[in-house]
Design a protein around this nucleic acid. Structure first.
Lengths: 191, 191
DNA sequence: ACCTGAACACCGTTCAAGT
DNA sequence: ACCTGAACACCGTTCAAGT
């Protein structure tokens, strides 16, 4: 007679789905596999998520928040050139720590699986702040885009196994950041 | 009594699959949909491709070759700073022209759907050549990685709809290339 | 209030049977 | 030599029925 009590939770489902994502990619995140991990049958998941893509979207939201949080401390470093290094290294470290989650952010997601603009506003604001300190207000947005595009691109290529010509990948990352900072700073005084 | 004659071809299958990829993403590239487009039933596709992932891999191979070809002409521009601009703009134009195909290259692919290292050796060599002309032999590989990572990252973010803060995206691309070139060149004479 | 089995429409893939 | 229908194991999703 007692109505069935909850045997799982929103958070547990997301956590297990994310585990499957890291282990076997998006294809491994099936409703049945997730249900199995949380000790329930697939149809029960629909009590908490509208469908698979909503579940994927919930993961993406969490990931955006974590990624933002991991680069946020860099904002508190006064020297902008140093802040760039810290933010870039933290961003890259997050992607290495959670490659499946990271790649999810830039995969073509279904409409309802898209992280909201607000959810990464904090991260965008932090990068913009550092960029403004580095190059001034006029080119802050452009510099922020340069920085973000480079770091994302580098990490994305690493995770895709695109650096196949040998050499020291860490050194290339470091060289690149130095080069970008060197190119960006003078534009404030010269241009 | 006459044995059944071929009703489609390797190339036709790849072309139609790619059309579906551009229209509806990877999920739309089902064996049944591809078969329907080439006027055949799904099982017939297995006469020419080992499976879906082999078909996806064949698309990826073609795309790598086309992308390489689109940036190759930049190599013939003597001024390296100018060559960087041309290569970057051609790369970006290709991604805008074939966003589905482009994104395929950086998605987590199954083992047999991976473009071979040889297939993009030409493109890598071209970028490396331009980088060497720009910064010298010592840092050529690192500069090539900076360039490639930035351009890929920028384009990837564009296609993912990640630039949501307004502003002029074309201008940010142009600003970024100028900044990278400005930062890279001095390192040859100074460092 | 949550959980379940059964069902449905869809996949990729295999294979014996057709021409 | 290529094509096909039928079959299999697997998806996501719905829903009536259980507690």
């Amino acid at each position: 007679m007692s109505p069935a009590r909850a045997r799982t939770s929103h958070q547990a489902i997301i956590a297990e789905a994310r585990g499957l994502l890291e282990e076997g990619g998006l294809d491994a995140v099936t409703m049945q596999a997730v249900a199995g991990r949380v000790g329930v049958r697939a149809p029960s998941l629909y009590k908490r998520f509208a469908g698979r893509s909503a579940l994927i979207g919930a993961i993406a939201q969490d990931v955006v928040v974590e990624l933002d949080a991991s680069i946020a401390p860099a904002t508190r470093t006064a020297d902008p050139a140093e802040a760039v290094q810290i933010a870039a290294n933290q961003y890259r470290a997050f992607a290495h720590r959670s490659p499946g989650a990271y790649q999810l952010l830039f995969s073509r997601l279904l409409p309802d699986a898209r992280p909201t603009a607000e959810s990464n506003a904090a991260g965008a604001a932090g990068v913009l702040l550092i960029a403004e300190r580095l190059v001034g207000a006029e080119h802050a947005l452009e510099a922020a885009r340069l920085f973000t595009a480079f770091v994302h691109g580098f990490v994305s290529m690493e995770l895709a196994g695109a650096f196949r010509l040998g050499g020291d990948v860490d050194a290339a990352f470091s060289y690149s950041l130095d080069t970008i900072v060197a190119g960006a700073v003078p534009q404030r005084s010269i241009g």
